[in-house]
Design a binder for these strands. Structure first.
Length: 486
RNA sequence: GGGGCCGUAGUAUAGUCUGGUUAGUAUCCGAGGUUUGGGACUUCGUGACCCCGGUUCAAAUCCGGGCGGCCCCA
């Protein structure tokens, strides 16, 4: 090939050397999304990402339902008046809202927002639905697409103007119950994000200056990318009492008094979490998935389309169907076996079975597992045991690998120079800090200006503090975590 | 928030600086033949200058705007 030898088949960029390019390449070559849709920040999700995201949705929804959340579908459009009811919320979201202004060629009497999030839609209904303490706790959720006119650079999956998520909206009789909900949301994140998707993260309480618009307290998970930047994943919020007042979300308590409810919300963004799955588990060959959320489980590659081999492939597929239906037989006669091997490794399918005459004759199978990139020969009669084993181990292996990398990157720092060093190593710095309320913001600005990083927050369970704030020298009141962020 | 780079077949690119031939190459796609155990070979064929405006005898090429993409810094 002429020019810069750029190959339009396999992944060229090295994940750890040139992460940005690696990600762009993987998105296109593994056919996760088509970025050619002619609208900035919007992309077409292709089957290989959708299969996986559907599974991710399902794990989250099952986990939420088990904890008492019930599903809803709310309208995509929200009247402007709903937005204007709570000052903090308006201020935070107005610059990011897409507005619908016309119906046909008639100008609408009131602008309609394409929901950037649905608090103001849900609370509108909460005020109608919630009458008595017996209606509480009220726990709901919906899966939805939301829209934000993000002015920063957009990136497929990571930062799009339309994204796919789940949002839970809950109401409680008192603040304590609301806080417990936040803790439950953290547990859900641990169960699903880490337990099933195998993504290590830390959940921080965001500093007061970095809260969700309209929240009294914000907690958010940070996942670490190989380039050393963290990306925010599920966040959970205690909503400011101003909302209950603004939307008149009241209930009659046991003591016969009318009281305002306490709301929480939790938002795992599936399309963005998918990005983290790609980024955290992928390698230089392309994608890797934990079995549970792999788009498909198994590919059978007959070495040729010889009728004997095709028949054998069908037979195996049928046999495997008691365990999984997600078996692809690759009969594309335009590709050589070698090309297929590389292709399916790039796509990250967990198990590949190479089927040739040799195998049929010897009643053996050549199998390749993507978690360990290992090829081995097994007896055909052991296939089901092998698949069961890989289905369990693939996630475990990916999780172990990711956890190890993550833990090694969190380091204590007691001077500005040390913080800089930790960040330059692609890590998260843990250090003493004056305050995460208003008056600590000066130091946070310093962190941003001088180091190009952000104070991500504190742990919910307060840590022992001693010593000084690394940035202003006052007595440290908090232990904070500092990282570069998207 | 600031800066830089880029837009030519489905994809990746040459050509742009220095305006002028039938816009070249690889891959993909379609048809045929030979192949098939780690990115096969061959013959034939289809397919492109992002949009709008300007300069000019002449624009992929120069200028302005729009739309879209990529990268870096804060």
């Amino acid at each position: 090939m002429v020019g810069d030898e750029r190959d339009n088949k396999g992944i060229v960029a090295r994940k750890n050397e040139n992460f940005s390019e690696w990600f762009t390449e993987v998105v296109q070559k593994a056919e996760l999304a088509d970025i050619r849709y002619n609208l900035k920040g919007f992309l077409v999700f292709r089957p290989w990402s959708v299969y996986s995201m559907e599974k991710m949705y399902s794990f989250f929804e099952k986990s939420l339902q088990k904890k008492g959340h019930e599903p809803h579908f709310f309208p995509t459009l929200i009247p402007e008046e709903n937005f204007e009811k709570e000052a903090g919320h308006v201020k935070g979201f107005t610059p990011e809202v897409f507005w619908v202004t016309h119906g046909g060629d008639k100008k609408l009497p009131e602008k309609l927002a394409l929901r950037p999030t649905s608090e103001t839609a849900f609370y509108q209904m909460f005020s109608l639905w919630l009458r008595s303490y017996k209606d509480l706790p009220f726990k709901s959720y919906q899966r939805a697409q939301v829209f934000r006119y993000d002015t920063k650079a957009t990136r497929p999956f990571l930062r799009s103007r339309e994204f796919h998520w789940i949002e839970t909206h809950c109401a409680f009789a008192n603040e304590e119950d609301a806080l417990n909900q936040v803790k439950e949301d953290m547990k859900t994140s641990e169960e699903v994000l880490h337990g099933i998707f195998c993504l290590p993260f830390m959940m921080f309480e965001r500093p007061s200056w970095d809260k969700f618009p309209g929240a009294s307290r914000t907690f958010a998970a940070d996942v670490l990318n190989p380039d050393g930047k963290v990306i925010q994943q599920p966040s959970t919020h205690m909503i400011s009492p101003d909302f209950s007042k603004a939307f008149d979300v009241k209930f009659k308590d046991k003591d016969e008094k009318e009281k305002y409810a306490f709301m929480t919300c939790y938002g795992p963004a599936i399309s963005r979490i998918f990005a983290s799955v790609v980024i955290v588990h992928g390698d230089d060959k392309g994608l890797r998935f934990p079995w549970e959320i792999a788009p498909k489980h198994i590919v059978i590659v007959p070495i040729s389309n010889d009728s004997e081999l095709v028949k054998k492939a069908e037979e195996l597929k049928k046999k495997i169907s008691v365990f999984t239906d997600e078996v692809v037989i690759d009969l594309d006669d335009r590709k050589s076996p070698g090309e297929k091997f590389n292709y399916w490794e790039m796509k990250g399918i967990p198990v590949r079975i190479d089927l040739g005459k040799k195998e049929v004759k010897d009643k053996k199978l050549s199998v390749f597992r993507r978690d360990l990139n290992k090829k081995e020969v097994i007896l055909e009669k052991d296939l089901m045991n092998y698949l069961r084993k890989v289905s369990v181990e693939s996630g475990e292996n990916l999780k172990r690998e990711a956890d190890k990398l993550f833990k090694g990157r969190i380091r204590d720092a007691d001077t500005i120079a040390k913080v800089k060093w930790v960040l330059s190593e692609g890590g998260i710095a843990r250090c003493g800090f004056c305050s995460v309320d208003g008056d600590g913001e000066k130091c946070a600005v310093k962190v941003e200006k001088e180091i190009g990083a952000e104070v991500r927050g504190t742990l919910l369970e307060k840590e022992n503090v001693s010593g000084k704030c690394v940035f202003c020298g006052k007595n440290a009141k908090e232990v904070v975590y500092i990282a570069k962020a998207y």
